[in-house]
């Protein structure tokens, strides 16, 4: 009923949405590697082009995607300012003591800004097009090899999915308790820092208690149904690779190869 929208998942059906989450995670890793390997604007342009294609294919509104950038605006501004003033270059435009603005500095900071924006946008595309449940399924499947060294992959995935599952419930609960205390005159919006922190206590304690209660209830319910760890458990939703994932794989490989070639031949290297 309440604010069910949590996280960023944008629930539409599209080419990108229907891809296998495992492939999407691997694709993201490859894509981020490519962004870091790129040493020229050409390399970044390849990444940006592919990313734009993905955004268009995913049917997530472009404006929504770029709104993500606001979150890192501070870091973007900080890095660009630092680089503009501290980058040592040859063509100096202005200098004062140890600060200087150079042509190279300007270009390099523009490069960094592009890189940052690309990084954030591509990561948020994963969360826009993959539901939390798919994501944990994908991670679990990808981590399976670690079972060889007795790493509790299934348990870890279970913890993750339970945690994700509980976020909306606890958010709802927070809202309820907050409303209840507001009805008793609690004030969360005014006052200084100390006063605001103190105002949280009447919400935090009931919330903590309710989280513990729910955890206990869930544990009991799982026990009652004889739940036990990972061995021999089958999945309700089996992950399966399709032609979409093959396309994704090709595109990912092409991007990395392209960027690496540009780097090796030094095309446009800064």
């Amino acid at each position: 009923m309440k604010d069910v929208s949590f996280g960023q998942y944008y629930p539409v059906s599209s080419f990108v949405h229907r891809m296998d989450p495992r492939l999407k995670i691997l694709f993201l890793i490859a894509f981020i590697t490519a962004i870091f390997l790129a040493t020229s604007f050409y390399g970044l342009a390849i990444c940006a082009g592919v990313l734009l294609l993905i955004i268009l294919l995913s049917r997530v509104p472009v404006g929504k995607v770029f709104r993500e950038i606001r979150g890192i605006l501070f870091i973007v501004i900080l890095t660009s300012v630092l680089n503009i003033f501290f980058y040592r270059g040859e063509t100096e435009y202005w200098s004062w003591k140890f600060l200087s603005i150079t042509r190279e500095g300007l270009i390099f900071s523009a490069f960094l800004v592009c890189r940052l924006i690309l990084l954030v946008t591509c990561s948020s595309m994963l969360t826009y097009t993959t539901s939390p449940v798919e994501l944990t399924d994908g991670i679990e499947s990808l981590l399976t090899p670690l079972k060889w060294i007795r790493f509790p992959v299934h348990e870890l995935a279970l913890i993750m999915s339970i945690a994700l599952r509980f976020i909306p419930i606890l958010m709802d609960e927070t809202e309820r308790i907050k409303n209840a205390q507001k009805a008793r005159g609690a004030d969360f919006e005014s006052g200084g820092l100390i006063k605001r922190i103190r105002a949280i206590v009447p919400v935090l304690i009931p919330l903590l208690l309710s989280a513990l209660r729910r955890a206990e209830e869930l544990g009991d319910a799982m026990d009652a149904r004889c739940y036990s760890g990972g061995r021999k458990r089958t999945k309700y939703k089996k992950l399966r690779l399709t032609w979409r994932d093959f396309v994704g794989f090709l595109v990912g490989a092409a991007v990395v190869t392209g960027v690496v070639l540009l780097r090796v031949y030094g095309v446009g290297t800064l």
Partner: peptide
């Protein structure tokens, strides 16, 4: 809110 008191469902969960 001083004039309109509100008791939510399961109000015992708001004790702190």
């Amino acid at each position: 809110r001083k004039h309109v008191g509100m008791v939510f469902q399961y109000p015992e969960y708001q004790l702190f």
